[in-house]
Write a protein that binds this DNA or RNA. Structure first.
Length: 476
RNA sequence: CGGGGCGUAGCGCAGCCCGGUCAGCGCGCCUGCUUUGGGAGCAGGAAGCCGGAGGUUCAAAUCCUCUCGCCCCGACCA
């Protein structure tokens, strides 16, 4: 294994795959397009998952599990849905050595199987709302894959809710995109634009799709989470009706929403640098790593017992700490190793620190390294982690603002695409116009932000006056 | 599916043009000693039917044919 990773400036894509592998987040599997999530990467995912799971439960949702195999005919019940997913389905045709009467699709998403069950479960307005989430794997046979960002099989959560009214289902879809925004900003330290997808970009089968869009380190956009208002599309496709308070039969209103292991990719590309990962303290598997330094057995035991007093105190404050006791590699190696893995704080503890009751503290996010007293460190460690979390967020927001440009013409869009970044513009074009733009520039309308200033201006493409502003960018 | 690149030790690669002491290098791994505050040093050692099949030849990692697989770029997409 060579040292370090390909610099971002030389080849961002290569940098990304280098970091994923050298930080031991994931590895390629024997099957094309699939990845093995390694323990360190999985620990990161578990932190994401556990945090979100608590947020979902706090907002009234419960977890369930639906099977992975879905009758092929189910997918065909919603016209747009099958059109959207057909090309990327993995289909099981044989089981138990025999050809199946009806092929089974490995779920690319679970709307259909879930709605087939909701038909059984929903009869009355008293059965609503139904607020179910599931953590699962899904399979989409993508042409091109990239570790975490787009793999054939990926892990995600999908919420599927059923409501008695349009208003309530819309509120749910909006509430969940706000949950995603909070998670992205407060935990991932990743600022996001929240808004609506255009007709072209929305989910297959949705009435409206809401999205959070983040800017990666190469100034490209990453769709990081989506929430869909499904209207009555799936209820009609699966004939899910309920009797309302007036004894009338009505189709159920629905929402669905999801985030995936792609968020790990988002984390890497939001914060990483040429030394590797930089993890936000709230999600880092280890928040503090301690590297012991000693010359002999006597020094070793003195250093380790001194360290024990530090870890005990940190753990008492719910700080996740790890002591790197490997005897087989040098301290210098460990410094680089943990920088690659993005641990927010590193302590170097050697004999002279033991003697003076000091610690040497290094910050991963800004590279600062200093000596301070053990007590000073212990009394400020938790606060320092909060500070880092906050500064990482502000840093990324500033980066996004510096790379977001207001444009008034198609040429200006091309300039932005050329230099990288988000383009904000008035937009009154058609779906066809949008496709044309994407074909020519590779940039797409990432979203119609919820936050609109209400001003009127000329559409950068059609020249017509409009109040609608959109954000365009090249996306992953 | 289109374009490009590549399969030689666990990983990264050289060798291929011009067949013949070419089975080689770096890292990693193993053993020992010395080391340990920014990727340790020295000495010794283990490890590869050269992606697979067929062919040409006295002789194939090297030339020819077929085949399998992977990576990158594009269309598609969380």
């Amino acid at each position: 294994m060579s040292k370090g990773v390909t610099p971002q400036s030389r080849d961002y894509a290569k940098w990304y795959t280098d970091v994923v592998q050298k930080a031991e987040l994931a590895d390629y599997s024997p099957v094309k397009g699939c990845m093995v999530i390694r323990p360190y990467g999985y620990a990161l995912w578990e932190n994401i998952k556990n945090t979100l799971d608590a947020m979902f439960k706090a907002s009234g949702h419960v977890n369930a599990y639906f099977p992975m195999l879905i009758p092929e005919s189910f997918l065909k019940k919603e016209a747009e849905h099958i059109e959207g997913f057909a090309p990327e389905l993995a289909v099981v045709t044989h089981g138990g050595g025999k050809k199946l009467e009806e092929p089974l699709v490995i779920r690319p998403t679970s709307e259909t199987i879930i709605w087939s069950m909701y038909k059984k479960w929903i009869n009355s307005y008293r059965d609503l709302p139904l607020l179910i989430n599931q953590w699962a794997n899904v399979v989409r046979w993508e042409m091109r894959t990239r570790l975490f960002l787009r793999t054939t099989e990926f892990l995600w959560q999908e919420g599927h809710t059923a409501h008695a009214t349009e208003k309530e289902a819309l509120e749910e879809a909006n509430k969940m995109i706000a949950v995603y925004r909070d998670f992205a900003e407060q935990y991932m330290a990743m600022p996001v634009l929240v808004g609506k997808k255009t007709e072209n970009e929305k989910f297959a089968g949705a009435v409206d799709t809401y999205t959070i869009e983040a800017m990666m380190g190469d100034k490209r956009a990453l769709q990081s989470g989506t929430s869909h208002y499904l209207g009555q599309n799936f209820a009609k496709a699966f004939d899910v009706t309920f009797q309302n308070e007036n004894n009338e039969l009505e189709y159920v209103y629905a929402s669905s929403w999801g985030v995936s292991t792609r968020l790990v990719g988002a984390l890497i590309m939001s914060h990483g640098d040429d030394k590797g990962l930089i993890l936000p303290p709230r999600l880092a598997p280890y928040q503090v790593v301690i590297v012991p330094i000693y010359r002999d057995e006597e020094g070793r035991s003195a250093v380790l017992s001194y360290i024990a007093t530090i870890t005990e105190s940190l753990e008492k404050n719910a700080v996740r700490v790890h002591v790197d006791q490997r005897d087989t590699v040098s301290p210098g190696f460990k410094f680089n190793d943990w920088e690659m893995k993005g641990v927010p704080l590193r302590l170097e503890i050697g004999p002279r620190d033991v003697e003076k009751e000091d610690v040497v503290l290094a910050r991963r996010d800004n590279g600062e390294k200093k000596t301070l007293s053990k007590n000073a460190f212990l009394s400020t460690a938790a606060a320092l982690l909060d500070t880092i979390q906050q500064e990482m967020f502000l840093n990324r927001r500033k980066f996004r603002e510096q790379n977001t440009f207001d444009i008034g013409s198609y040429d200006e869009l091309k300039d932005v695409v050329e230099k990288g970044g988000f383009a904000r513009a008035y937009w009154d074009g058609s779906g066809e116009d949008e496709k044309q733009i994407q074909e020519e520039t590779k940039a797409s309308i990432r979203c119609i932000p919820f936050e609109q200033d209400g001003s009127e201006g000329k559409c950068f493409y059609t020249g017509r006056m409009t109040k609608q502003q959109v954000v365009l960018a090249k996306a992953y």
